[in-house]
Design a protein around this nucleic acid. Structure first.
Lengths: 224, 224
DNA sequence: CCTATAAATAACCAAATAGTTATTTGTTGG
DNA sequence: CCAACAAATAACTATTTGGTTATTTATAGG
C-alpha cells in the first residue's frame, strides 16, 4: 500500500479510486441512474481517466459487479467452515452472511441492478465461474459432513440451501424500506436486526436438520 | 369494462394504457432507466397526456408501485386461507406467492426499484397502510389457529414468517439471472421451478410446525 | 345547434448525459 | 539531461432527457 504520500501521478491509485466511486454510485442509483460525471467527480478524477482505464460505463459496471462478488466469496471462504462441526458451521455461515450484507449494502444493490440487466455483465466473467464452483463445493461438503454424522437430512440440494440461506437475509435487507412501512416497524433497529438473525439461524437449522436433531436442539435451547 | 369500441376520446382508457405502459417500462429499466417518451409511445398516447394525468415521472412511478402492491394483496386476500386447515393454508399461500411472482415479474422489479429509492413513493400512500394491516392480520390469524390446534409452534412472529415466506420465492426469482450463471443451472427450467416450490413449501412448514408435527409430516410423505 | 370544456397532438426547450478531442504536465529509461 | 510516453485536466459535442407551450379537435350540456 504505497498510499502514504499523495503522489501527483499514480495510475493504480486512480483506478482504485474510480472503482470505489463507481461502486458507491452504481449501488446508490443503479446502472441506469448512475452518472459517469458523478463517478469521476467522486473519485476526484475526471471522465477522460475513467474512459481510459475502463472503456465505457457498461464495462466499468461489469468490473464493479465482478469485484463485489469476488470480495464476498473471498471473505466467505476465509470462514473455514470445514474446521467446525456441521451445526456450528451453519450458525457461523448464517451469521456471516447477515453481517456481510449489513456491512456492505452496496453488494445487494449491485446484484439487484445486475439482475435487472439479466446478468449480461457477469456472464462474461471467467473469474466468477471459478469462484462459484468452489462456493457450491463448500456447501456440498458441509451438507455431506452433516449427513454423515446424522444431524442433517439426506439428499439436500446444496444449491437450494445456498439460495435459501442468502434469501432470508437478502430479502429482509434489500426490502428494508418498503418492509418498514408495510410492517410499521423499524426493521433496521438494533433489536430488530438481532431478532432476525436469531430467526434466520433457526430457519436454516430447521431446514437442514433431521426431525430428531431439531427436537434435540429445541430441548437444550439451541433454537432460541 | 367499456373497452369494446375504441372511442376516439376516452380519458379512463388512456389513463389505464399509460399506467400499463409505465408498469412495463419501470419494471424493465427501473425508475432511473425508464424513459417518459417510451412510456407515452408504448401507451399509444403522448407525453402531454402523461403529465396531464399523472403530474411527473415520480408521481407516475408512485402510482405504478401502489397499484402493483394493491393487486398483489387483493389476490392474496381472495385465497380465503381462513377456510382451510393451517397446514393446508400454508401450502396454499407458499404456492400462491410462487405462482404470482412467476406470473408477475414486474412486481418484483418494481419493489426493487422502490427500495433503491428508499420507499419514498410508498411512504406517501394511504391505501397501502390499510392493505398492509389486513395482510399482517391474516398471517397472525393463521398462525394462531395453527398454534391452537397444536401443529404450529407458539410465539411465532407473523412479520418474520411473512418476510421469510416471500424471501425464499422472491430471492430465487429476482436473482434468477446471476443465479443461473453462478449455479450453472437454468433456474427457470420447468423442473427447476417445480423443485423450488417443493423445497420452499418444506422450508416454511419446517419453520412454523412443531418438531412432532414435522416428524409426522415426514412420515406420511407430507414434506416430500 | 353551438359554445365551453377537456382530450389529444406535435413541436419545442433548457438541462443533462455518455463519450471525445485537444492540451498540458509529470515521470522514466537511455 | 532530455525525449518519448503516459497520466491528468478541461473544454467540447451530438444526442437524449424530463417537462412545457401552442394548437387542434371531439364532446356534452344548455
Amino acid at each position: 500500500m504505497k498510499q502514504a504520500k499523495p503522489q501527483v501521478r499514480d495510475p493504480e491509485a486512480t483506478k482504485l479510486r474510480i472503482l470505489a466511486a463507481a461502486t458507491q454510485e452504481f449501488a446508490k442509483f443503479g446502472l441506469g441512474g448512475a452518472r459517469v460525471d458523478h463517478i469521476a467527480a467522486r473519485a476526484k478524477s475526471n471522465k477522460r481517466m475513467l474512459y481510459h482505464y475502463f472503456g465505457n460505463k457498461d464495462a466499468l459496471f461489469a468490473i464493479t459487479v465482478e469485484n463485489a462478488y469476488s470480495q464476498f466469496r473471498e471473505q466467505e471462504a476465509a470462514l473455514q467452515l470445514d474446521s467446525l462441526d456441521p451445526v456450528t458451521a451453519i450458525r457461523r455461515l448464517v451469521s456471516f452472511i447477515w453481517d456481510y450484507f449489513i456491512k456492505h449494502p452496496e453488494f445487494i444493490t449491485l446484484v439487484n441492478s445486475e439482475n435487472l440487466h439479466k446478468a449480461k455483465h457477469l456472464k462474461a466473467s471467467k473469474r466468477n465461474t471459478d469462484m462459484s464452483r468452489k462456493f457450491v463445493a463448500r456447501m456440498q461438503a458441509l451438507l455431506s459432513r452433516g449427513e454423515a454424522s446424522g444431524v442433517f437430512r439426506h439428499g439436500l440440494d446444496p444449491v437450494q440451501v445456498n439460495i435459501s440461506v442468502a434469501a432470508i437475509a437478502y430479502y429482509y435487507l434489500t426490502n428494508r424500506f418498503t418492509g418498514s412501512i408495510i410492517f410499521e416497524r423499524d426493521l433496521m433497529a438494533k433489536d430488530a436486526l438481532a431478532d432476525r438473525l436469531t430467526f434466520n439461524t433457526s430457519t436454516v437449522l430447521r431446514m437442514v436438520c433431521t426431525a430428531e436433531e431439531i427436537a434435540r436442539l429445541e430441548k437444550n435451547g439451541g433454537l432460541a
